[in-house]
Simulated assay, not measured.
Amino acid sequence: MPGSAFIAACMEKVLSGVRITFAEAEQLLATNDVMALAECANTITRKFNGDVVDVEALINAKSGRCPEDCSFCAQSTFYETGINKYPLLPTEQLVENAKMAKEGGATSFCLVCAYRSPPEKDFEQICDAIVEIKRQVGTEVNVSLGFMTLERARRLKEIGVKRYNHNLEASESYFSKICTTHDFADRVNTAKTVKEAGLELCCGGIIGMGETARQQLELAFSIAELNPDEVPMNILIGREGTPMEDMGIIDPVDVIKAIAVWRFIMPETILKIAGGREVHLKDRERLALKAGANGIITGGYLTTGGNAPNKDITMIKEIGLKAK
């Protein structure tokens, strides 16, 4: 197993501006020296990103009835999961949630909607809501609306959206195991489209869906090729009613290792621990923020609760970092 000398050599390579190879990433992920890996990933994070943690809140602005069959997702029409389903929330409610998020300490607010692609009426309503949030709250607004045309992406850019989220979710070699209603290339194309429109790209995925260690790294390298500004790492929580409901808890050490290695692969991005962090990491969330992660989603996720923002802000300050 690779030891601290190999890990340090890889760190120096990254610090000098050279990207590690796939083979090196495989060796890093296989190491038993987790603390050395975490410390080196932390050094990379501090060098390229400083001591700031990006804190983002999101709202599930339209829940359920998604026509895609992603096997991890409680919002798919293909599965009976018992979630609260509702159409696009009114603008007033979205503005109020953005205000609460800002008051809670979040510096950005993301509107997430369960669409393949929004119908025109909903897209116009979303645009109106974004304008009002920018006007009344003054917070950074990000969106996640499914597949996107260049024309619509440019419209979002014009009204002040900063970042568009569209995750790859799984590696290309594993993608057909989790979704059959669209393919990996569809997701890559939308990621490229929003970048072409001048929006920042938020693009991550999910670990713990039964993929191999190699496929986990394939996902990371595919994301890195897109040069995203932000990379959310989600850790699967098997939701009742979905094909993945019986997936168990991942060893938190394996999560820490994955975070650290993704930092070696993508040294300059905002690497955000997102859905599932509270369940899988438990008391190791502080370690995750000193092992490569420099961002969090706070206040809950799409169909799952999360930490209160004040708890997360306190945690960040306790480990000597700053919430942004």
Rank of each mutant, 00 (worst) to 15 (best):
S71W: 03
C10E: 03
L168V: 03
V34S: 09
E225K: 14
G82D: 09
E245Q: 12
L94I: 05
E211R: 01
A291T: 12
F6S: 11
D128Q: 07
T180S: 11
K257T: 07
L289Q: 07
G275Y: 00
N97M: 09
A23I: 05
G276Q: 10
A25W: 00
A101M: 04
G299T: 03
A220N: 15
G299R: 01
S71M: 07
N49L: 08
S71H: 13
V194F: 08
I7D: 09
L236D: 12
V279Y: 06
I249Y: 13
S76Q: 11
D33I: 11
V279W: 08
R214F: 02
G138L: 01
A106W: 01
F22H: 09
L217P: 01
T139Q: 04
N165V: 03
K157D: 02
K192P: 02
I249K: 09
N32G: 09
G238H: 11
S63F: 05
I159G: 13
A170Q: 15
I316L: 03
F48G: 05
E56C: 06
I316W: 13
T190I: 05
E196N: 10
V194Y: 04
L226Q: 00
I223C: 02
K290Y: 06
L201E: 09
A293D: 14
E68K: 03
L37V: 08
V137P: 00
K311G: 08
E132H: 03
M209R: 02
T181E: 09
Q75G: 01
V255L: 06
E225W: 02
A293F: 05
T304Q: 15
P232I: 01
A197F: 08
D51H: 10
I178L: 04
G305L: 04
F175Y: 11
D246S: 08
D33H: 09
V188Q: 05
A36S: 12
R286Q: 15
N165R: 00
T31M: 13
E96W: 08
S108N: 14
P119G: 02
P228L: 02
L150G: 07
L289G: 12
E124D: 11
R277C: 06
Q27T: 14
W262F: 10
P118N: 06
A153R: 00
I59G: 01
A25G: 14
I59C: 06
T139S: 03
A258Y: 10
E245A: 03
L321G: 09
Y164F: 05
L281S: 06
I207R: 01
L226F: 08
G295L: 09
Q93V: 12
A61K: 03
T298Q: 14
V53F: 10
A274C: 14
M100G: 00
E80P: 15
L321M: 13
T91V: 08
E240T: 12
A57W: 00
N234I: 05
A25P: 02
S144M: 10
E140V: 04
T43P: 15
E240H: 12
I265D: 04
R277E: 11
V53H: 11
N142Y: 04
L58D: 13
